[in-house]
Amino acid sequence: MYQTVYHRASSVDEAVSLFSKSSEAKFLAGGQTLLPVMKQRLASPSDVIDLGKIKELQGVELSGDVLTIKAGTTYFDIMQNADVKKAIPAIAYLTSVLGDPAVRYRGTIGGSIANNDPAADYPAALLALGATVKTNKRSIAADDFFQGLFTTALEDGEIITAVSFPVPAKAGYEKMRHPASRFALTGVFVAQTKSGEIRVAATGASESGVMRVPAIETAVKANWSPSAIDSVSIPASNLLADIHGTAEYRANLIKVMAQRAVAAAG
């Protein structure tokens, strides 16, 4: 890794202030994405500002029909959390099959969505559940937050503070794991909101990152059952293709994972 200067921030305000004083700083949450990239010298921040010890970024709150997970909450703490398990068990499940145990102790939901890896799991949950991303400056709807591969609506120096999820009527997540990296080769999150809206999001599949799948939403709206998806046709155009999965295969996985996610959601 290149030379860098490490700072530990004790508050969001301090982090913002440190950022403004650095030439090319990066925020460091759990570091499970940024550090591997820095180790390969693919990123060379002048400074890294550690958000990991900021108390105001930790914790989960369930208030009425809204589950709020603060950005610095680790995967491990999310999957263990009683409110998460009660309100949106699909998020607890998604988290339990994300990364590996050591990664889950360190990685955070804020770090994951800020990076917006096209094969990350959380973006699918946020998009399907119609979540809201809270930052130190504003609130951003998930629909607006994810803007393509490794690109988000975040501005320079903007820090994600929390993600708020409307508690759905039901939701499910299933993924096919990438055989090597263990990211999502394709993962699909299905949700039925309490107002009856159906939202389906797929990750790992598209050249432009996490995406909604309207064809499946339409089919499932008419009939919430795996068999409703049987006749849906997912075009392979614009889907990712690599040595582990052709575009046609990923198109198939969108369908199959959606069916299994619907079944898991009950």
Partner: peptide, 29 residues
């Protein structure tokens, strides 16, 4: 490995298993 996958570097930090190749010393201060 270089990509935080093999786990040969796992140690316990405050009782939890973490990959010591994916942590700056400052984070462990």
């Amino acid at each position: 490995c270089d990509t935080s996958q093999c786990g040969a570097c796992v140690v316990h930090m405050d009782g939890k298993a973490v990959k010591s190749c994916t942590m700056l010393v400052g984070q462990a201060d």
